[in-house]
């Protein structure tokens, strides 16, 4: 089952206490947020105690940590659900491609659900109650807001990591057969989500206007969008992919992108 692990033993179990530690650490998910990998390093920060307990072989730990430094972004409250599932998979020493596929496939949808649930529902309701009390000079306003909000917040954070972990373990037991098939299914799912994320997350539009005599052509809406929506994000991602394959370092790509942004803004085309 575990051809890509030095130590394929899967007898380590995470206790409730271990899971709680991971949930606490998930609070720093966005400590090292950046535009390139978004929450990746904070996500890895959260997983570290679990990964160290599971991967006693240093080479295995290194492989796993490297994988979890890849692009990651989801809703900061629902992240513990993904942590739970991924911990169950890591613990069972599942194929690394399968782990990556499941991670990528869950982060996008949970991000959207979380935005709707918390920023557009929970926050307005609880803050509305708090503000209406505070408006009358009642000190209970902020306190009631914090209590109501955080009961839901921490309840979900600590509840979901357990739910994710035990669901993950149960699902793995049912899917004993065919690691290859599971990785394949996870990759299919993961890549469809990545395709969607490229179109929605990469924010690349041109503001350039081409003047030909009397007529003004807005490059983005009159031309590019008619060829294909999200053409620039797709082209740029493929270009970056191609440069990486050619052996260019990601740092070079960052420098290129930053220069392009600054120069493009100065010439008013971005």
């Amino acid at each position: 089952m575990a051809s890509n692990y030095v130590d394929p033993s899967n007898d380590v179990k995470l206790s409730k206490k271990d899971l709680n530690i991971l949930a606490w650490r998930s609070l720093l998910l966005q400590a090292s947020f950046n535009y390139e990998r978004m929450q990746a390093a904070g996500w890895l920060y959260g997983l570290i105690p679990g990964l160290r307990k599971i991967h006693r072989n240093k080479q295995d730990l290194s492989k796993s940590m490297k994988d979890h430094m890849e692009f990651f972004n989801t809703h900061p409250f629902l992240v513990t659900f993904i942590m739970g599932i991924i911990m169950a998979m890591e613990q069972n020493k599942e194929d690394r491609d399968a782990i990556r596929g499941i991670k990528v496939a869950t982060m996008g949808p949970l991000g959207g659900i979380g935005d709707a649930l918390f920023w557009l529902t929970l926050l307005p309701i609880t803050a509305g109650i708090g503000a209406s009390l505070a408006m009358d000079g009642n000190i209970a306003g902020p306190i009631i807001f914090l209590v109501l909000f955080n009961i839901v917040h921490f309840g979900l954070r600590f509840g979901l990591i357990r739910y994710g972990y035990y669901t993950g373990i149960k699902a793995i037991q049912q899917l004993k057969e065919g690691t290859k098939q599971i990785s394949r299914a996870a990759s299919i799912l993961g890549l469809s989500v990545v395709g969607g994320l490229i179109a929605t997350y990469v924010n690349f539009k041109t503001t350039a206007v081409i003047k030909t005599g009397e007529a003004k052509v807005k490059l983005q809406t009159d031309l590019l969008d008619k060829i294909m929506p999200a053409l620039l994000p797709l082209t740029y991602t493929i270009l970056m992919y191609y440069l990486l394959k050619k052996g260019k370092s990601p740092l070079t790509l960052i420098v290129i992108t930053v220069l392009m942004g600054i120069i493009g803004k100065c010439f008013n085309v971005l």
Partner: peptide, 13 residues
């Protein structure tokens, strides 16, 4: 502007 485009590098990786 560059920040908006940068996830492309993450996805490419």
């Amino acid at each position: 502007v560059a920040g908006g485009i940068m996830p492309a590098i993450g996805f490419a990786m």
